[in-house]
């Protein structure tokens, strides 16, 4: 039974990963509001995040999200440890860069960078807005929490801008390989379909990487 669990572990990573991919689409779409002129962006962004907080369905989805992130990371760690045991001795000369991409071989490192990002990202926003830890979030003229100002102020700090923008790069590579291989793990083997999937994954990863990477920079220079 324990061994059988190994098979499901991979599926679990794929399923949680694909869910997180869908989440990122929604997240980036909402963040695109920040690219609008400040007065419009402020109102739209605050009312949007207010609507999210008030919706019970979103509350449920949020818990699924937290669980997905934790499961994805923990199970990936378990699999990585298991995989390392399968190759206890490395090659003295290794030219594996000739047969596989560096990002496909380093999903664990890319994932760890993303996890560090998520923790800091949650501390910046989620802890302040949702948990009320740190400086109090003021209300805007409509009586909604002024999430826009929290974002705007954060991205006046060049170090946070750099951190958020640079970390979008490992995200893009992780997503590219993750999306492509997640479907294969779940048993999608249609040859032509896989070729299309590879292209879709590339486009998806570029949109996510550029999208999340550019927003902090745009906000900084606004």
């Amino acid at each position: 039974m324990a061994l059988n669990f190994l098979f499901y572990r991979k599926s679990l990573i794929a399923l949680t990963g694909l869910f997180l991919c869908v989440f990122l689409v929604v997240h980036l779409s909402a963040n695109a509001i920040l690219l609008l002129p400040n007065d419009i962006a402020s109102e739209l962004y605050n009312s949007y995040s207010h609507t999210l907080r008030e919706n019970p369905l979103i509350t449920v989805v949020a818990y699924v999200l937290y669980i997905s992130i934790v499961l994805h990371a923990v199970v990936a760690l378990l699999i990585t440890l298991h995989n390392r045991k399968a190759k206890p001795q490395k090659y003295i000369m290794d030219k594996s860069q000739q047969n596989s991409s560096w990002y496909s071989k380093n999903m664990g490192i890319l994932g760890t960078l993303i996890l560090i990002f998520i923790i800091i990202h949650l501390a910046n926003f989620w802890a302040r807005i949702k948990l009320g830890i740190g400086e109090e979030v003021l209300l805007d003229k409509n009586g909604y929490k002024d999430v826009f100002s929290v974002t705007y102020e954060l991205f006046q700090n060049i170090w946070f801008v750099l951190f958020y923008s640079i970390l979008a790069i490992p995200l893009a590579f992780h997503l590219y390989h993750g999306l492509k291989s997640g479907f294969k793990t779940l048993g999608f083997y249609h040859k032509k379909g896989l070729r299309i999937l590879a292209k879709v994954s590339l486009i998806y990863a570029i949109i996510m990487g550029v999208g999340f990477g550019i927003i902090p920079i745009v906000v900084y220079f606004k």
Binding site: Q98, M107, K184, G187, Y189
Partner: peptide, 27 residues
């Protein structure tokens, strides 16, 4: 260990067996 679809195997395989076989096995 488990497969993480780096694709190295199908490049080194003398018979060029496609990695799609692994996805099919999963199905």
């Amino acid at each position: 260990g488990s497969c993480t679809f780096t694709g190295a195997c199908e490049v080194e395989c003398p018979e060029a067996i496609s990695i799609t076989n692994i996805a099919e096995m999963n199905a």
